[in-house]
Design a protein around this nucleic acid. Structure first.
Lengths: 149, 149
DNA sequence: CTTGACCCTATAGTAACTACAGGCTTCATA
DNA sequence: TATGAAGCCTGTAGTTACTATAGGGTCAAG
């Protein structure tokens, strides 16, 4: 199977597949005489797993951990459990932060009647003042980290 | 006020302030004879607003819109309202996506007893199979977009 | 024998910073 | 007055997970 077919079968692009190979997520396949990548079914399985993990929002580092836990079958799957649980907590933390942003934005949106000049706008005033509290001072930075783009 | 003081007063770093200047979010300040940036109170107000917007998860593009709406005081503040509402919807969409991930991860985490070998692990099996449905097929990509890093 | 679809490598761009490297300036202290 | 630390300057490279070229080779059909 060449790269285009693999891409289509897994809902990816050839560029992304080559990128995963370069980053060590996907092992290098055989090459044809014309230097084309030739993929085996095992590559498809692995790529599918990578894409599923990405759909679940995991980072490459997390995925690499999962893959190497899978590869070393001496390992029991408590490692796998740990990784999933940790990722679940990341997701839950992001949800909490976003919900606090949501309520802050709600409050802000209510502060403007809508037809004033900008110099009287409650929203702009609210944004210019010192904000109540950063969302989560326990974290090492301001709190809305990790959720842009 | 020099850059270090401004950084401290606003909870930023000098690097970030210079970066905002370079990106056009913060206007270039005067320079001293030694070529040091010399900031006026207006710079501090503007920087505080930028940081608040960032804490609320807004992109630079959104912030630029807000700032230029503020600058053109001929404008009424319906523009400001629109930007905030749009951003609120972005945040709500992210929350929805993350909550779906959360439930998918919960399901996955329940599929492993914890002490098997990795070749029998329900989590790994689940990750290798075709995933039920991407989180939001209406979006142009898989659904967990926009929430990595 | 040429056209078009595919494949290859290598490089640059995205967002919003962060972290140097290498070099001035300023200020307090010895 | 010398010196050392702290602060400032510019410019560049690194981060994440891709995406998008540029410039070229390969292959099957007509």
């Amino acid at each position: 199977m060449k790269i285009g077919e693999l891409a289509e079968r897994t809902g990816t692009t050839a560029e992304t597949i080559r990128y995963y190979e370069q980053k060590g997520l996907l092992p290098e396949p055989e090459r044809t005489a014309a230097n084309y990548r030739e993929y085996a079914p095992e590559h498809e399985r692995r790529l599918r797993m990578i894409r599923n993990c990405r759909t679940l929002g995991m980072s490459h580092a997390e995925i690499l951990e999962l893959l190497s836990a899978q590869d070393s079958d001496s390992d029991d799957c408590s490692t796998v459990n740990r990784i999933i649980e940790a990722h679940l907590e990341h997701v839950q933390e992001k949800i909490r932060v976003l919900q606090q942003l949501e309520s802050a934005l709600h409050t802000l949106a209510g502060q403007c009647s809508g037809a004033n000049g900008t110099d009287a706008c409650g929203i702009l005033k609210g944004l210019t003042n010192r904000l109540a509290e950063p969302v989560h001072p326990s974290a090492h930075r301001s709190g809305a980290d990790d959720l842009h783009r």
